[in-house]
């Protein structure tokens, strides 16, 4: 333990000080989401893995935890942000050339190397496709996996994110299946919540890892569906959403029983959540 008698000379920099990123590109893929490509001033923060997140902030508004949506080693940080409240609405007003402030990357992401050789089933609901994209890109880039399947559920066709990238993923061998919650004129694909895509899957449960990313309500049903297909809790990975105020394991907001999601998570094996009744 170190105490700093003289803060200017001996103490490390404040972990609360964000670093600046220039917005290189700002797109509005849907009515609720905005996509940003950031060029950070400090190149060190580009060292991230899929599943990790940044505390993203604007002076005067505050910070919100946001997952990384770009693949690793792409030389930039991409974020996809849904406007839901104070901070996220303020961020939505930013355009190319503006500055966004970030701290991070934080948390434990996916161990892509450790997943190599397996069949992967990605299940994403809503904004969960944002962190999933980072993982899918990393997996495609590395190669050396078995069958890759992406199940993605959105409310309606107008809410689908990254629709223009799926053909490219299919070309790289990912079986992309998209479903929307309710029928919509002109939509020819699947209809129903994302869990309905699970039973028809042909799964080799011994060599399959499932990755589930979505809003908290999604997890119970998806997990139930995957267990029915014989996938063990040890082979299910998911990312938990909690309120977060620091990203540093201090503020206590993200705590689930003994676990601090910002430190030990946000990515967990389902088996690790056994004994954490508040987790799901």
């Amino acid at each position: 333990m170190s105490l700093y008698a003289n803060p200017t000379k001996s103490s490390p920099p404040s972990p609360y000080l964000p670093s600046a990123c220039r917005i290189e590109e700002a797109l509005r893929p849907t009515a609720k989401e905005k996509f940003f490509r950031l060029a950070p001033h400090d190149p060190h923060i580009l060292n991230y893995s899929p599943g990790q997140f940044f505390m993203v902030g604007l002076p005067g508004y505050g910070e919100a935890p946001i997952s990384i949506t770009s693949g690793p080693d792409e030389g930039c940080i991409e974020l996809c942000i849904r406007a839901v409240g104070n901070v996220t609405n303020a961020i939505h007003r930013l355009e190319k050339g503006d500055t966004l402030w970030v701290r991070g990357p934080f948390g434990r992401g996916f161990d892509v190397e450790g997943m190599a050789g397996k069949d992967l089933v990605f299940v994403a609901g809503g904004i969960g496709i944002a962190p999933m994209r980072s993982l899918v890109k990393a997996v495609i880039k590395r190669g050396g996996f078995g069958r890759l399947t992406l199940l993605y559920g959105a409310k309606g066709p107008e809410e689908i994110l990254y629709g223009d990238e799926f053909e490219g993923w299919r070309a790289k061998g990912v079986d992309v299946r998209i479903t929307i919650d309710r029928p919509s004129p002109g939509w020819k694909g699947y209809v129903g919540v994302v869990t309905t895509l699970i039973p028809p899957l042909d799964i080799d449960e011994g060599r399959t890892l499932a990755v589930v990313l979505g809003p908290p309500v999604l997890y119970k049903f998806v997990i139930w569906g995957l267990r029915h297909k014989g996938i063990k809790d040890d082979d299910m990975l998911l990312s938990l959403e909690r309120r977060m105020k620091c990203g540093l394991g201090k503020c206590g907001h993200c705590q689930i029983n003994c676990v601090y999601v910002c430190q030990e998570g946000p990515v967990f094996r389902l088996s690790e959540l056994k004994g954490l009744p508040e987790a799901i």
Binding site: S2, L3, Y4, A5, N6, P7, S11, S14, P15, K250
Partner: peptide, 20 residues
């Protein structure tokens, strides 16, 4: 409290005050 604020990321705000 010393353990909390010095474990992992160093909380300079607490630790500087504590050190003095």
């Amino acid at each position: 409290m010393d353990r909390v604020f010095s474990c992992g990321a160093q909380d300079v705000n607490y630790l500087a005050r504590r050190g003095r």
